[in-house]
Design a protein around this nucleic acid. Structure first.
Length: 419
RNA sequence: GUGGGUAUAGCUCAGUUGGUUAGAGCGCAAGAUUGUGGCUCUUGAGGCCGUGGGUUCGAAUCCCAUUACUCACCCCA
């Protein structure tokens, strides 16, 4: 137990960390270009926030939350997703009084008690974006464009954008009824889970993979055909904007998102290369959520992307990022006198922003050179009594094997020039 | 929560019909005449054979349980 991380968690280090950092840098840069500002909200919130925000009927709230009572008898939950906390902050910090729209992004751990499998962890990480204050299709377009742009910049080309509109609350209610009516004729041919869903959440039946259910659904009414004129116009304008930006998409009437708060636009970027959990990025519009959380009616769009899944898709294309570490120079030494000089020099170089390593293992010169090679040092030098006497150190380029003699004082300058 | 697969060294994996001290490759460490890397060679360290119980004269090997990992369902990022 002491040497086992809790189930469904992961240590991030080594080559995985390289990819992770690259991803974070890309995300930061793109969000800045799109005018989104970073927000970091607490890792835990009052349980009620998620019950309201994510929805009482969702699996997330009903069975997957890490909840506990703190010493002050507060009901606390580790965030199972990123949006609710941001919505809370938007209201609490009165960001609606700033220039609108408010455009925020976050990278955060999230926690769900689920059976782990490929692309699914109990602690995972979400990159997400939220845009508050605009009900216009252009806001949907901007958010989708950001996601597409990010994926492109990460070199993720093996994903497809699926998009749909569920309509506003009225359309949705109406569609639910039409769908139930349609299904009622064939309810006995549905799979057992779908028979349950018929009562609970008929929309979900649409993306059941069971063949029998698919057969029943063949001529099912589609949400996009039940939209009122406003919702329909909204969706069509969004598609026109995506076309204008040359963002490829598939209108997929079957996508239904599991979170309760979506209205109108929903979309997913789906990969076929990372197993059953193929949704790399999912989001949509949630015009009712802010009211639900106690604010005045405010439209919003956003998405969440799973960092681990993004990395999986990147690795499916490029393999894992096995970059060797690199250091500017390895400075070794022989003998006690040289040791002091070397440590002083190492410190000076580091103060000049040069990456240096030296011997901490009392190794032979040969072993020190081997180590220099392993850590990917670009240059190496060994300081001993001879070098101290003559004030001359031989700097070796590890790749070309070229060597050059320098005074100890000249080393920092030389390394800066050859950084 | 439900099902399938797996579990031997840091990693990838051998291990015969149950038989004495459990192996290989890679990695790690030391060395191959003086203070200089990558190749080669030698040597070494490192295993409660996932854990607990059972069968047996004897278990890494057979049986049961358990845990973890893994894939899928479910759900979602």
């Amino acid at each position: 137990m002491l040497t086992n991380a809790p189930r469904g968690t992961k240590d991030i280090y080594g080559s995985y960390m390289n990819t992770w950092k690259k991803l974070e840098d890309t995300v930061n840069e793109i969000c800045t270009n799109f005018g989104f500002n970073e927000i970091r909200t607490p890792i835990f919130e009052h349980t009620e926030l998620f019950q309201r925000g994510v929805g009482e009927t969702t699996d997330i709230v009903q069975k997957e939350m890490y909840s506990f009572t703190d010493k002050g008898d507060r009901n606390i939950t580790l965030k199972p997703e990123g949006t609710a906390g941001v919505v809370r902050a938007y209201l609490e910090r009165k960001m609606y009084a700033d220039a609108q729209p408010t455009k925020l992004f976050y990278i955060t751990p999230a926690f769900r008690y689920e059976r782990p499998q490929a692309g699914r962890y109990r602690q995972f990480h979400q990159f997400g974006v939220e845009l508050f204050g605009s009900d216009k299709p252009s806001a949907d377009a901007e958010v989708i464009a950001l996601a597409a742009n990010m994926l492109k910049n990460l070199g993720i080309t093996n994903v497809e954008l699926h998009i749909n509109s569920l309509g506003g609350p009225e359309c949705r209610k109406k569609y639910n009824n039409t769908l139930k009516e349609f299904l009622s004729k064939n309810i006995d041919s549905l799979c057992p889970t779908c028979m349950e869903r018929y009562e609970k959440n008929p929309l979900r039946i649409l993306d059941c993979k069971n063949e029998k259910c698919q057969a029943v659904l063949k001529d099912a009414p589609l949400a996009k055909d039940e939209l009122d004129t406003e919702c329909k116009e909204h969706f069509e304008e969004l598609l026109r904007l995506l076309d204008a930006m040359e963002i490829q998409y598939v209108v997929d009437p079957w996508i239904v998102r599991g979170l309760d708060y979506y209205t109108r636009t929903v979309f997913e970027f789906i990969s076929k290369d990372i197993g059953a959990q193929g949704t790399v990025c999912g989001g949509g519009r949630y015009d009712k959520l802010i009211e639900e959380c106690g604010g005045s009616p405010t439209p919003a769009v956003g998405f969440g992307a799973g960092i681990e899944r993004l990395i999986m898709t990147m690795e499916a294309i490029n393999g894992s990022n096995e970059d060797k570490p690199t250091r500017d120079i390895y400075l070794g030494y022989v003998g006690e006198n040289a040791k002091k000089t070397t440590f002083a020099l190492v410190n000076e170089l580091r103060n000049n922003n040069i990456s240096v390593e030296t011997d901490l293992m009392s190794r032979s010169v040969k072993a020190q050179m081997k180590y220099a090679n392993k850590i990917g040092a670009r240059y190496s030098a060994i300081i001993g009594d001879n070098e101290l006497e003559e004030n001359s150190v031989r700097i070796k380029n590890m790749e070309t094997r070229e060597q050059i003699d320098l005074n100890i004082e000249e080393i920092a300058k030389y390394m800066k020039e050859n950084k």
